[in-house]
Structures are given as structure tokens and as C-alpha cells.
């Protein structure tokens, strides 16, 4: 998940881990912090992969996907990474533009993500749909469409993230753009009355939501799974929107500068197997991008399954991101 840590996302671009001094081969993976946390997928993934090779995985974690990209830009050809895990489709074009990524040359037949994703450089490892998550105790009837969200009762508030600083914020911007097109500014002007506040990252918004300050938050369709599995409560649910949900696909790719390309390729291959995919749902709280060998916890069957997946062409996003953010700023700031 490209969860945005508050106001430190870019900063931790510089987060460092110690490269191993071990004799055996080392695979250095740059990823984001919630992947390597003790409760994240990292520790298990490392254990599973190291069983298959005489090698050591070294994780270097930064705050989130955007920070990953900045870190690569800073390091350029001198980067210590063999593999980068945690970019998303919105960052893919810019990541390729660095010229640091190498085609994987692998068969990605196992990959199944809604809407499909096939790329010669990046391989998906999980995905999630953005969704409005609501508090059933404060809001018995959630909006059933983006239109209802935009036009609903302004007294029922939502908290969203800032597209200038966070990936979910950018996700909502693209979601609204996909549905409303050129009418997006008008939709934002209307939605504005419903927005309690715009936070710099996912954590602040979700914190406000779970503290009961606001009945709706922009998050993922998978968020309720955490509350159902880890906290055993059905209180927080995602609202299904009839226009469809914008998707976030998380990607990994190998670097041209790597000295362990075989190992990197082996890891990408491993990533598409059940050994890796089984770990993802209950540690990263996202949907697996390839088959698992174990059934998902029951809670995942009760999640919203979007009928229609929205995803803009990465090239188009890269080309228009700034203009669309300016448009958003104008619509949201006008008196």
C-alpha cells in the first residue's frame, strides 16, 4: 500500500538500511516503510524467498511510493538498489523516464488484476480500489455513487487527502476526473461543502475518521478487512459506487545498474507465486495480484467488489497531473 505517512513522505526518501557484509549474494530491495514493518509483509517475504536461494534480502525502506521514486532520482546511476518494490501505476511513467529500469523478460501469465496490466518493465504484486469508507454507527445509509457523494447532504462530512502531497489524494483526483471529465471542477466545487478538511496524508485522514470526528474517509475497499480480521468489528465499511472505483496497482521492477540481475529476476518470479501472494492480504491489506494457495480470510469475501474498474493511462496522468492539480486548487480555494 502506498500509505502516506504524514509530512515525512519525501523526507524518508533518504532512509537507509545497511547493505549486508555477508559472503552470500545479497538482493537489495528498495521499498516503503509499511512493507518492512514488523507487522508488514517484509519479514515473511524475506524468510520465504531466502528459503529458495542461497542469498540474503536487504530491505531499504522509505516512507512511500513517491519517496521511492525521489530516492531513485537522487541516486541516479549510483543507486544501490537491485529491485524496487512499491511504485504504482501513476508513478510508472516517471519511473521509466529515469532510464534506471530494465525489462524483466518474464512470463506474467499468473498476474490477474482488474482491468488488466501488462508491462515489459513492471510487474504488479497487489492492488486495491480506492473507496469511501464510512462509519456505520454515524452513517446508516452511505452514498451509492460518486454522484451521490458529490451532491449529498453537506452536513455529512468526508475527509480526503491532498493530491499535492499524497497518493490516495491523487487517486481521488483521478477518480473524479475519470467520472466527470471536463466537469470535474464543478463537481469539486460542489463536493467542497462536504469536505471537512484535506489532510497531507492517509494517516491523518484515517486518524480523524477512527477518532469519530468524521463519518467518511477516502481509503481502500480493503480497509474494512483490517477492522474485521484484526479488530473483529464490522463497524467500518466501504461504500460501493455505481460509476466504478479507481484502482491502485502496486508494482515492482528491476534495475539496469544491478549486479544481481539473476537474483532480481528470480525474486520477481517468486513474487507471482502463492508463497509470496499468500502473505499479502493480511499484512499489506491489499488484494493479491496472482493466485494464492490458501483461501483469503472470510472478511475479504465480504468486501466491496467493484463491478467497474477505472484506471487512466499512466502517460496521460504524467502529462496532465500538474494542470489537474491546479484545476483542483482553483475549484477548492475559490471563495
Amino acid at each position: 500500500m502506498t500509505r502516506t505517512l504524514p509530512f515525512l513522505c519525501f523526507l524518508s526518501t533518504f532512509a537507509i538500511a545497511y547493505p549486508a557484509m555477508a559472503q552470500e549474494k545479497t538482493l537489495t530491495i528498495y521499498t516503503y516503510e509499511s512493507f518492512t514493518a514488523e507487522w508488514g509483509p517484509g519479514p515473511q517475504v524475506k524468510e520465504e524467498f531466502e528459503k529458495t536461494c542461497a542469498c540474503t534480502i536487504e530491505f531499504v525502506s522509505v516512507a512511500d511510493g513517491v519517496a521511492l521514486l525521489s530516492r531513485l532520482k537522487l541516486e541516479g546511476q549510483g543507486t544501490g538498489a537491485d529491485l524496487v518494490l512499491g511504485l504504482d501505476t501513476n508513478l510508472a511513467t516517471e519511473a521509466k523516464a529515469t532510464g534506471l529500469f530494465e525489462p524483466h523478460g518474464l512470463d506474467t501469465g499468473a498476474i490477474a488484476v482488474p482491468g488488466g496490466y501488462d508491462d515489459e518493465v513492471f510487474i504488479p504484486y497487489d492492488y486495491g480500489h480506492f473507496a469511501v469508507v464510512y462509519d456505520t454507527q454515524a452513517m446508516p445509509t452511505p452514498p451509492k455513487s460518486l454522484k451521490e457523494l458529490v451532491e449529498g447532504d453537506p452536513a455529512q462530512k468526508i475527509v480526503i487527502q491532498d493530491p499535492r502531497t499524497s497518493t490516495p489524494g491523487l487517486g481521488l483526483l483521478l477518480w473524479v476526473k475519470s467520472v466527470y471529465g471536463d466537469d470535474a471542477p464543478a463537481a469539486w466545487t460542489k463536493l467542497r461543502d462536504r469536505i471537512l478538511t484535506v489532510t497531507p496524508g492517509w494517516s491523518e485522514a484515517y486518524g480523524l475518521f477512527t477518532k469519530g470526528e468524521v463519518p467518511m474517509v477516502l481509503s481502500y475497499t480493503t480497509s474494512p478487512a483490517y477492522h474485521m480480521v484484526a479488530e473483529d468489528t464490522e463497524r467500518y465499511q466501504a461504500a460501493a459506487f455505481s460509476e466504478g472505483h479507481y484502482i491502485q496497482i502496486e508494482l515492482a521492477g528491476m534495475l539496469t545498474t544491478s549486479n544481481s540481475k539473476e537474483l532480481a529476476r528470480a525474486f520477481l518470479d517468486f513474487m507471482m507465486t502463492p508463497a509470496f501472494q499468500n502473505i499479502i492480504p493480511t499484512t499489506n491489506w491489499m488484494m493479491p495480484a496472482a493466485p494464492t494457495s490458501e483461501p483469503l480470510p472470510d472478511a475479504f469475501n465480504r468486501l466491496v467488489k467493484p463491478q467497474n474498474t477505472l484506471l487512466m493511462d499512466p502517460e496521460e496522468v504524467a502529462a496532465h497531473r500538474r494542470a489537474w492539480i491546479d484545476e483542483w486548487l482553483t475549484a477548492m480555494s475559490a471563495r
Partner: peptide, 18 residues
């Protein structure tokens, strides 16, 4: 990084994982 974690960093890390 995983080798250099302070209390506020741990706090935000928890917050960003629900």
C-alpha cells in the same frame, strides 16, 4: 530506516498501518 527508528517514527509507522 529499519535500523534507525525513533519513538515518533514508530508512532507514525503504527498509524500508517491502521
Amino acid at each position: 530506516s529499519s535500523d534507525f527508528v525513533t519513538l515518533p517514527w514508530l508512532l507514525y509507522s503504527s498509524l500508517s498501518s491502521y
